[in-house]
């Protein structure tokens, strides 16, 4: 009798472990030095994430690092830009030692320049160039830089919000992890939440401001669903190889 009970307990314990494992989210590395440890190992696989900040705050570098990390671990990436031409983008990013042309030739990376109107059409018709690109290289990571142009296409917040949900629903079919960028100039404590904030799984801010004679670059996580994250304003720098967070440091 005792033996049977013991066996049952063991089986229950195994089942508990298994179900806990199933409940835990699979994480993927963000590619940002110092960030993964702050967010339980990375973004939730298949999540939609937002990084917002003002001009020159490092959003584009952040987004590309996310894609390049994916490529490093065998997850190909598609970069959709509403602003930059491919030529300029490749040129600027080569300063960090990132050879995007080589990655493109190796069918690991695709850069798409899209007008917000094209995305609007994409929602109406479905599929399109993004879908072809995603399927073409079996991409697991997607960046849309930036989402502002898209949200401005709609007459009011409600219409914009609905369209955004449609876009997310479309993206979810690709089964990828997405990073959106949003241009927003604001101090973290005075920041007005955009409606995009409510629809995404995580919101992060890159702040580029000054205090007296000093330029301050700080990073903050506003929300990250299903994740215990560090609630701290963290200094960061744009170094030779991209963005580096310094979680052990404090902003003075």
């Amino acid at each position: 009798m005792k033996k049977r009970n013991l066996k049952k307990k063991k089986q229950d314990s195994k089942l508990n472990k298994k179900s806990k494992k199933n409940l835990a989210f699979k994480r993927i590395s963000t590619g940002i030095v110092g960030l993964d440890n702050l967010v339980q190992g990375g973004f939730v696989d298949g999540s939609t994430n937002l990084v917002s900040g003002g001009p020159g705050s490092g959003k584009t570098i952040f987004a590309l690092q996310f894609l390049l990390k994916g490529i490093e671990v065998g997850e190909n990436g598609v970069y959709v830009s509403f602003e930059e031409t491919k030529e300029n983008f490749y040129k600027y990013m080569s300063k960090f030692g990132w050879n995007l042309m080589d990655l493109e030739k190796a069918k690991k990376f695709i850069f798409l320049r899209y007008s917000p109107e094209q995305v609007k059409a994409l929602l109406q018709e479905g599929g399109g160039e993004i879908e072809r690109a995603m399927q073409g290289i079996k991409a697991k990571r997607l960046v849309i830089d930036s989402i502002n142009g898209f949200t401005l296409l709609f007459p009011n917040e409600l219409a914009g919000r609905e369209a955004l949900l449609e876009l997310f629903s479309l993206i979810s079919k690709y089964g990828c992890t997405t990073l959106l960028t949003l241009e927003q100039e604001a101090e973290p404590d005075k920041r007005k939440a955009s409606f995009v904030d409510f629809e995404v799984d995580s919101v992060m801010i890159l702040l580029n401001t000054t205090k007296g004679n000093v330029r301050r670059r700080v990073f903050e996580i506003i929300k990250m669903r299903g994740t215990k994250f560090e609630e701290k304003i963290i200094p960061f720098r744009i170094k030779d190889k991209g963005i580096v967070l310094y979680p052990e440091e404090n902003v003075i």
Binding site: G212, N213, V214, R216, P235, E248, E249, N250, V251, I252
Partner: peptide, 15 residues
């Protein structure tokens, strides 16, 4: 370091 008032940068570099 750009300026002696950038204490955060000084701290990062010491570390």
């Amino acid at each position: 370091v750009n300026h002696p008032s950038d204490l955060t940068e000084i701290s990062i570099n010491i570390a």
